[in-house]
């Protein structure tokens, strides 16, 4: 594979290098994350994705853009936020690439670098979900949905009235959130984990952040594929 290296691929911008560094750090924590190197651009992921028709960049193109040193285009895309985590792509990828997890890593990179994409409402929902969990220890769906619509457009709440009414009639609507008893011990865990997240230094990468193209991904170790 080494002979395929694009020697004249050129250097990348500082921003691109930073985005790649954060992203590849995340990839390191995905079991079998390094298989991203093996993409053969067959498009099975795109063909298996039930929502690819609504994406601006297809899942296959995500990997192509990453290779090409276009992380910023990915960060601004709607694609990473519309993924519903159905894992159809991951199941079918002939190279065993953990595409859904790769998309998670891209989401985290975008959140960390504060990219306000076209789909910032997804980020709003994610942040509200996290704060709901921190506050009560369990998710209270009513609070989450109410707070979400208060942020993205409260008039949409009115559209939910028929559904809320049905839930109420069938005794499925809980009006108030309740904290778990062990709330304090849970928040201690969360606080510590946040500290750890900040101090984590990823092990040295075998990827280069200086180059784009195949060369940035290092040489593919073909022998590793045997016996999988």
């Amino acid at each position: 594979m080494a002979h395929l290296s694009i020697q004249s691929a050129g250097y990348m911008s500082k921003n691109e290098a930073e985005l790649r560094r954060i992203f590849l750090e995340q990839v390191n924590f995905i079991p079998a994350g390094e298989r991203i190197k093996r993409c053969i651009q067959c498009g099975t992921c795109t063909g298996s994705c039930p929502v690819s028709y609504a994406m601006d960049i297809s899942p296959r193109q995500l990997i192509a853009l990453f290779r090409a040193g276009e992380m910023e285009t990915i960060m601004k895309s709607r694609t990473i936020w519309i993924c519903a985590s159905c894992y159809a792509c991951t199941t079918r990828c002939p190279s065993g690439i953990k595409i859904t997890d790769i998309i998670y890593a891209l989401k985290r990179t975008a959140m960390e670098k504060n990219y306000l994409s076209q789909a910032k409402h997804v980020q709003i929902l994610a942040n509200l979900f996290v704060s709901n969990l921190m506050k009560y220890g369990r998710l209270h769906e009513g609070t989450l949905i109410r707070n979400y619509y208060l942020k993205v457009g409260f008039w949409k709440l009115f559209k939910l009235i028929p559904l809320a009414k049905k839930l109420y009639q069938t005794k499925r609507l809980s009006l108030f959130p309740k904290r778990i008893n062990a709330y304090h011990s849970l928040s201690k865990i969360i606080k510590k984990a946040q500290e750890i997240d900040l101090r984590i230094t990823a092990p040295p990468l075998e990827y280069s952040t200086d180059y784009v193209g195949y060369r940035a991904l290092g040489e593919m170790k073909l022998e590793q594929r045997k016996g999988e």
């Binding site: 924590f29 985290r108 994610a126 996290v130 997240d197």
Partner: peptide, 12 residues
């Protein structure tokens, strides 16, 4: 949660 935080979500 799994898609936005790493150690925190795993610890939770």
């Amino acid at each position: 949660y799994m898609s936005v935080k790493e150690t925190v979500s795993l610890a939770v």
